[in-house]
Design a protein around this nucleic acid. Structure first.
Lengths: 224, 224
DNA sequence: AAGCAAATTTAAGTATACTTAAATTATTTG
DNA sequence: CAAATAATTTAAGTATACTTAAATTTGCTT
């Protein structure tokens, strides 16, 4: 009923819809999944037939309840594997996502529950993404905003990197930007929406593309 | 180059050739892999083209060096996963083989090496199968024979169950026959080659089909 | 050694998940 | 608002890994 390929489409549709709120376009999916737009159109119809998504010709996909259930399950498997591979098997940052991407598709309910138990039911993965429980429920979390939307002259704590690419993660670690570190948003340029931040004792400029991927919670005001 | 399907064929060919020493027949593979004989014939040609096996029409398959290398790698991945799933994640006997069967195909060199290290380089899996190292070398092991070939009136230690089926494993555990237990081969019937054994304080009769799957090493003579 | 049964292959066809190229629909812009 | 351009779909074709049914080969039996 659901193959690896289909699962990849469903996860991409769910994730993009969560992030951007609108119908997920064929072009986006083709880029993300590295296939032609024609393939997306084809698969769109199949997934719609099987009730995982709604697919209107020329206007993209939206996830259904059934699709969401599968997507949350995949997210759960993916994120638990990530924690496991990093914390237990000591794979590093960059390897973890790619491995999890493969393992998530072939992991039975029993196995993933065993991993969950072994890890004492973690609530977040190594990027700060919340891990759905068996029922597909996310842990309750304080409100988070991306650095792009947060206010200047305020102190925050980084709680999530909303990106899995090894490249960006390496960039962050080179800059001393890591999960749960404090960050002070000193300024934002009108010109290109880039931001200036103080983190790990350094002042950095970050493009809005990057700020958009860093999620934070507010801390008490900084006293200078 | 090598898909999950192909890997399953190669593993089956390698394993059967090891066990029975002759060309592996299409009928055997069709049964083992749950596909038609026509499918085996098809795939046989493909695998031969790619250098994994030799395949002579009407006379079955033999593994090549290249195929053996891949098979040993698969065996390594499979067996390490089995140890990991049982010892670390506490899955039970029956579940372990099936899960490993899926995971082995999508496990990178790095991951399997991390698992190997985590487990402190185990030499045998939960069925007593030897685990090849990174180079495809088996650990040195004392000579083992199946109960079918061993001599009566001698004491042995069970060191391997050469079968992965849950059914047989359950049967053994019901009879109190477990890995590394002592077993005394009291008699063998000419009639059907079945054997009488004393194990776990009980006297049992075992069919030759079953005796064939139990591998033992000799212990010092039993003193009555 | 001929005939027969079993094993195997060939042939034709299916489903999945793609591809490229042409045709169609939607959207932007002057 | 029409034309251009961008996005998407349709059509035709490919590779993989199967299927069933018919034809062929092998090896056994007498």
């Amino acid at each position: 009923m659901s193959t690896i390929s289909k699962e990849d489409y469903i996860k991409a549709i769910y994730t993009d819809q969560q992030r951007n709120g609108k119908n997920v376009s064929a072009t986006y999916l083709a880029g993300k999944l590295n296939v032609s737009k024609a393939a997306v159109s084809d698969m769109g119809k199949k997934l719609a037939n099987q009730g995982f998504i709604k697919y209107e010709a020329y206007r993209g996909a939206t996830i259904t309840k059934k699709g969401e259930k599968l997507a949350l399950n995949l997210l759960r498997r993916h994120r638990l594997w990530e924690v496991f591979l990093m914390d237990v098997l000591k794979l590093d940052w960059g390897e973890v996502h790619e491995e999890a991407e493969k393992l998530e598709h072939l992991t039975s309910e029993k196995l993933i529950d065993a991993i969950d138990k072994y890890l004492h039911y973690p609530k977040f993965d190594p990027h700060g993404h919340p891990i759905p429980n068996k029922l597909g429920e996310f842990p309750h979390t304080p409100a988070v905003v991306s650095l792009k939307e947060s206010q200047i002259k305020k102190k925050y704590r980084i709680v999530r990197f909303d990106d899995e690419s090894f490249e960006l993660m390496k960039y962050f670690s080179r800059l001393g930007i890591s999960l749960y570190s404090e960050i002070y948003l000193s300024d934002r340029l009108e010109f290109d929406d880039s931001v200036f931040v103080e983190v790990a004792g350094r002042t950095q400029a970050l493009s809005s593309k990057i700020a958009e991927r860093i999620f934070v919670t507010e801390l008490e005001a900084k006293d200078d």
